[in-house]
Nucleic acid binder design. Sequence first.
DNA 1: TGGCACAGGATTGGATCCAAAATCTACCCA
DNA 2: TGGGTAGATTTTGGATCCAATCCTGTGCCA
Lengths: 213, 213
Amino acid sequence: MADVSSARVAAYLREAILGGDLKPGMRIRQEEIAAKLGASRLPVREALRTLEAEGLTESEPHKGARVPRLSQHEVEVIYRMRERLEPLALLESLPLLGATDHERLEEVQRQIEANDDLEKFLDLDREFHMLTYSGCAIEPLNQNVVRLWNSTQHYRRAYVALGGQNRMWVVNAEHRLILDAVVRRDATDAERFLEGHIRRTRNELAHHPEVFE
Amino acid sequence: MADVSSARVAAYLREAILGGDLKPGMRIRQEEIAAKLGASRLPVREALRTLEAEGLTESEPHKGARVPRLSQHEVEVIYRMRERLEPLALLESLPLLGATDHERLEEVQRQIEANDDLEKFLDLDREFHMLTYSGCAIEPLNQNVVRLWNSTQHYRRAYVALGGQNRMWVVNAEHRLILDAVVRRDATDAERFLEGHIRRTRNELAHHPEVFE
DNA sequence: TGGCACAGGATTGGATCCAAAATCTACCCA
DNA sequence: TGGGTAGATTTTGGATCCAATCCTGTGCCA
């Protein structure tokens, strides 16, 4: 599913949702998307099914698709899932990362530290973490990690936009610890620092209920 | 998506894959399924997309869908994911389970102990665990747990068929410990026993490479 | 004025038809 | 006899059309 039309539609919708153009609660009309992409409704329907299973949309029969709205508690549990799953992905990935990956990580982290654009930060942060997992070849695990990131993307954006940037130095310090552990191939440290990184984020989110409207 | 045709098709295929009629590596032809269910190919296509995202099928453009074949290492990592995620689901569920649920659990466990049919054991075992998670209202977590169970169903069956029934008393002892912790509402114990239960199964699987052909 | 019922439009679900790609088969040639 | 290639068949991907359901707005009546 690469050159295929339904894949293009799925990619477009994914981008739109993760990019914040389609916000939680918004309805997605098949015809509208089809017209915008110059395709028929069929690929749109298939794409929506795919996204539904990725947790990016939800749909009821004859009622159509929407971007799901998550409660604060749901987001909190998703973060707890991340705390448990991502260290496992890192554990699988770490031994397979080479010098080139380490340099790329270093480069991305430098970009994060030099950056001051919020939207760009979200992309770079995601790239940093995904790079650390890029050695993991277990597809179900990779898919899960991506799904969890996707489903909280909107709330992460809201949090950062709400003033999370004051705490950016904490993020950078934690990234540095993770990066160092990865380069040293210290799985125990890497797991611990990563878990702490996610847990801290969860705690900060818990103290900002305004992110959830 | 309840009365809808594509949901019926998805349910049928799910059953066929979990029931072992469609084995890993087997190809799924849209026309064939459509004819068998008296529907057109369209609902089948949508169903396949859904199942694909559930990890029950995989597909390449113009090549069609297959039941994925997992390596021993992949199954092992999926079990590690279960070790981390299912205790979380139990944690969320436990406080919300009532006396009725406890009785139902007790009843299912009695059936497992009285049962000697392998196929039936798989169903009952699944029902037992799913019941313990049934209080958890976090959809992404529930979906994940189901997906992980689904994707290893075939290998679980192969293991049980290969003589796992000698160790049935261990399963029952562990289920009893979990059940007791659930009734006592002891989250710490429940998490610990459940995690141990899954880890032991993973270890036993690791010593039976013949399950993976 | 407020609520309910009905009708019309809008939107999704399903079937059939056509196009494109992949697989299979048979044949040719070394 | 074995391998490769070209064509035929199968199978999947996409578009259009029709049916079923849902939503909305209007009007009627208490």
